[in-house]
Write a protein that binds this DNA or RNA. Sequence first.
DNA 1: CATCACCATTGCATAATGCAATTCTTGCCC
DNA 2: GGGCAAGAATTGCATTATGCAATGGTGATG
Lengths: 166, 166
Amino acid sequence: MSDEKPPHGDEVDAITEAVLTASRLLVGISAKSVAAVAGPITLPQFRLLVALGSRGPLKLVSLAEMLGVNPSTATRTVDRLVTAGWAERNSNPDSRREITVGLTTAGRDLVDRVTEYRRGEIAAIVERIPHEQRAGLVQALQAFTEAGEEPPPRASPYDAGLTHWT
Amino acid sequence: MSDEKPPHGDEVDAITEAVLTASRLLVGISAKSVAAVAGPITLPQFRLLVALGSRGPLKLVSLAEMLGVNPSTATRTVDRLVTAGWAERNSNPDSRREITVGLTTAGRDLVDRVTEYRRGEIAAIVERIPHEQRAGLVQALQAFTEAGEEPPPRASPYDAGLTHWT
DNA sequence: CATCACCATTGCATAATGCAATTCTTGCCC
DNA sequence: GGGCAAGAATTGCATTATGCAATGGTGATG
């Protein structure tokens, strides 16, 4: 655009473009990983498991909030996960109006397998990056992540590979 | 698994971890962007619009394949988008068994607004990255993207921010 | 022209969602 | 202590998203 530019306009554009592109790749990997490992589970269900995996047992409302869905949706998704044997409902001794939802061993296992798979996919890509570039990558990504995390201490169900809402 | 590792195991791990973290951040941004701009549209619907936006008018089967969903799902999602005024069905003069689906002006507009929003979100983060790190970022991300794209010439509906399937 | 492959659509069943009750449980105020 | 407001989970209802399996048309090939 401009030849005599503000200190960094074009540079920012270039980086933004690069991030956007990398973003697509990463999202594709997440999707693929769940599909490859977690056969008969749906993405929303898996996201819920990931949330439980990273924040331990949660009460229903917290869980729903963390996932960004309505509590009723969480209730019913938990129903299905319990039926499938991946999650369990536990009554809270301190307050009988709340329950806590946690992973079963099978559930934790599933989450671990998907994470491992994804880690492997990414590692495979990293292996193909020329050594000279690698050091730069870590620094660059950390810088990016730090810059992005300042405002919101984002959590992890996004980790599942996607969101959903409406 | 193996304790005696190849020359660079740790380095790969570090990068993988960094990528994983950045990945979460990026996915969150995508989600937020659609939510912020595209009021009464759902994510699957929006993904379809993005696909149309990046590959021009498509026949239904191609569209479904691109999104990774069943043609019947695509048919019905298109129905809703047409009703909402974001997409249009056109008969193909060359072959009456096919149709093509394209964006309306309103549809293209919606996609553009979301993309702009997301670009802005990312740019805002990039602006906070120390200058010294920026050059490295572009190179590093490009190296990563190239390494990742080698096998699959990944497309773009992932661009929407997420996937869905089952 | 007869069959086979391809395309879009529709039927059917299940999952995911949100919003609006409903039912308990807690807490708090008088 | 009684009662009432707020909080938590669930259930009812309607819409969307999905996949699989027909169905009805269209094109192509022999």
